[in-house]
Design a protein around this nucleic acid. Structure first.
Lengths: 350, 350
DNA sequence: CTGAAAGCGCTTACAG
DNA sequence: CTGAAAGCGCTTACAG
């Protein structure tokens, strides 16, 4: 039973099975070049000895790793476990997708500041790289460019825009921004603030903003620059942005926050100022993180399909690795309408 | 610039530096057996060629991997991205701790049902294994036993009880159960339901229950078996457990749920039955997941120190790998008192 | 269908 | 301080 010490190698198996070592390798990898009988014998012995192929040896020889690396960049807030819940849920879905595709997943949280030359692939630690949340796009784009030049296989999560290096998978941010704004307009709101960066430094937010502006325009409303306030994806940033708006005494009857965390921070600020949500100010977010449905009032938002997103990212990366054609893609979103935007009793999702 | 194709090897560097290949290896690994001047020269060339040590080769030779594997077991709910938020936050803290200790982290979500013989270490994919959330303890204990016998290095998250195979790191569940119950008693509650499994199949919950019972006893109250209802860590399970209790017409003025998700499901059931929280029924949970502070009313709970927990798990595993002595440990918890247990305005954490 | 040979790119004794 | 040699455990042409 307990022979544990000293792991068995393919030579041990070969010896016991009375075949050569390469035959063991072939049999265990399911090569059709091995007779059923031989294979069976080898399999049995391997199991008995609890033999496992040494991944380092097999990877070294085969020059691949069967592993993908996920690089998760943290937003400025280098404080503790406050990872963006949206990314956490992406992580869940990516992990599952990796398992389905037979890949292991190496996870790494990177500081934005750090010099991530993403040496995972150079190292042969991974066959390709998944990129999530890299902060200022314009700062990171050169690095992406370099990755692309080096021939590194990578897929990034983010706005899929023309002329970008590499492959991007992202939600249809424009549509989301448009639809949720149209909804707020339909609820009778006219002065809708946008909380979030609206520049090409943050293309996802920018797309949401552009959708927002487009919906306003369609309703004959010109976007008021005073109603757009920069914010990054944190509660605190949303809180500050909202406070700023209120303190400047800018009239508004609704808020579209570029992310749920921003929206939650904004609702807090509204409450502190004695304003009721949604009676005085309707609020909507983006992402549909788990907290959204538990917020008080529950938060109307644009739901990103993280399950599909993770699957698509992994599948695209696998295709890249296998030298199959891959294109950037945009994933449809849908509205999750809850109390924060509506007088009426809770409508819609969970 | 773009010589990218064909990765450089240590032989290339050696050639260019006019030294032998082993010297390159030594220089790059910081061996003291290399002169400063040689090292500098080698370093410069390596950087210029963007050389990276091939991990597969180096691991194969050195018989180690510099990688830890995290096995995350999913609760019965094999449905989508609904991973227990508590584990997600552990994941965040573990990832950071790995980075700090110079290890890579392989993440794998396992189905409980699956035959996880955790071949990560046998594979040489990882030097050790971190185990999180394995469902029914009695079902998993044999596997743990086997891992221990095989000499696999592993650390599990869970109740640290005498006689367990391997090393466990967990919160002080007994203390947490005791303290939160004492708090509810202090708020004047007398009939306190416990929602969660209370048997050695789920040692963590059981410990929380035992702390609960102990606090009651200290107040001269005998635990009423009718007030304990089994539940696993999901909103749905909490919802069902609470409904059962209410439908059976069992009198109660407080609920201590073995986890926040259970508590949130229970609050939903209470609201559906027209009961007010905390006025009619006080509610408390366990974990302090992010949602807890966003619940309506905000949820009083026992806060687990995930940051410390992740760090401790990783450090313990690294010690095991290095054959240093390691002991199971229990981490102190603290109360996060919010609206769900108190009439008074919001007190305490975020 | 199977075997003998080579080699993936390192690290580590062993000499000097 | 440095080099020549061996070998980690596989996979993959190449023969037969």
């Amino acid at each position: 039973m307990t022979r544990s010490r000293d792991k068995a190698t393919s030579f041990d198996i070969a010896h016991l099975a009375g075949v050569s070592q390469p035959t063991v390798s072939r049999a265990l990898r399911g090569s059709p070049m091995v007779s059923e009988e031989t294979r069976r014998r080898i399999r049995a012995i391997a199991e008995q000895l609890n033999y496992k192929v040494d991944k380092n040896a097999s990877n070294l020889r085969a020059q691949q790793s069967g592993t993908l690396a996920l690089l998760l960049f943290e937003d400025p807030t280098p404080d503790d476990s406050l990872i963006n819940p949206f990314f956490l849920s992406m992580l869940g879905s990516i992990t599952r997708a990796c398992a389905l595709n037979g890949y292991d997943l190496l996870v790494s949280f990177q500081q934005l500041s750090t010099d991530w030359q993403a040496d995972y692939e150079d190292n042969h630690k991974a066959d390709g790289i998944l990129l999530l949340g890299y902060g200022d796009y314009l700062e990171s784009v050169q690095r992406l460019q370099k990755l692309a030049e080096q021939g590194t296989h990578f897929v990034r999560w983010g706005a899929a825009l023309p002329g970008q290096p590499g492959v991007s998978i992202g939600s249809d941010n424009f549509q989301g921004g448009h639809d949720i704004t149209a909804h707020l307009l339909q609820c009778g709101r006219k002065r809708i603030a946008f909380l979030g960066h609206a520049s090409n430094h943050y293309p996802e937010f920018f797309e949401r903003y552009r959708g927002h502006v487009e919906a306003l325009r369609a309703a004959g409303i010109e976007a008021d620059p005073l109603l757009q306030v920069d914010a990054i994806t944190t509660e605190q940033s949303g809180h500050e942005a909202m406070n700023g708006l209120l303190e400047r005494g800018i009239g508004l009857d609704a808020v579209f926050a570029a992310s749920d965390l921003i929206a939650i921070g904004a609702m807090k600020a509204l409450h502190e100022h004695g304003l009721r949500v949604p009676e005085d100010v309707a609020v909507a977010g983006f992402d549909d993180i788990p907290m959204a449905s538990f917020a008080n009032p529950s938060l109307s938002t644009v739901q990103q399909d993280t399950k599909r997103a993770g699957a698509l990212m992994v599948e695209s990366l696998v295709r890249l690795i296998n030298k199959q054609p891959v294109e950037s893609q945009s994933i449809p979103v849908k509205l999750a309408l809850r109390q924060s935007s509506q007088q009426t009793p809770d409508v819609g999702a969970t």
